[in-house]
């Protein structure tokens, strides 16, 4: 076991981990931040996407020890300071961008990373950016729509939800 320390959602976090402890295990099992999901555990599905130093990564395919000293943000750190949903989260609710909700934390984290890089993405750019996030409920349409809306685009002409 070795000590690992990082900043998670703005707060210092540390714990003893094995070499093989994945970042997602550390977040869920040590810090009890269970909003980050494990879907496939093979880096295909994107349910475990978090931000490490501002970049979207799959927390199931990164060791906790590799995040030593890093700034980590999870879905629990995305809401506004007053606890209300942030723009992306609210857009997912408004445009029915989720059904069962399992993929949603990863979708929100990927969408936020996209908008940080590219504040006004096209539908094509959004779909390309979500290649590593799988949703088995929605058919993606309303997720894409929610992200376009979160970017401030007029989505009223896009087919009804």
């Amino acid at each position: 076991m070795a000590q690992v320390s990082m900043t998670v959602n703005g707060k210092a976090a540390s714990g003893d981990v094995e070499g093989r402890t994945l970042l997602v295990q550390f977040l869920r099992e040590n810090l009890h931040l269970t909003g980050t999901h494990v879907g496939c555990d093979t880096s295909q599905c994107g349910a475990c996407v978090v931000h490490v130093n501002g970049k979207a990564v799959k927390a199931c395919t990164m060791l906790a020890a590799e995040a030593e000293g890093a700034e980590v943000r999870t879905i629990e750190g995305m809401a506004n300071a007053d606890g209300s949903l942030n723009t992306v989260q609210q857009a997912f609710q408004d445009h029915h961008g989720l059904q069962c909700g399992f993929c949603t934390p990863g979708m929100v984290m990927s969408a936020s990373a996209l908008l940080a890089e590219n504040p006004n993405p096209t539908e094509t750019e959004i779909r390309a950016y979500l290649e590593g996030n799988i949703c088995r409920c929605t058919g993606y349409h309303n997720i894409v729509k929610a992200i376009m809306a979160a970017a401030g685009q007029d989505v009223s002409k896009i087919a009804a939800e």
Partner: peptide, 9 residues
């Protein structure tokens, strides 16, 4: 290569 999260690592 891969997807955006893979490309970041």
């Amino acid at each position: 290569i891969g997807d955006p999260a893979v490309r970041n690592r």
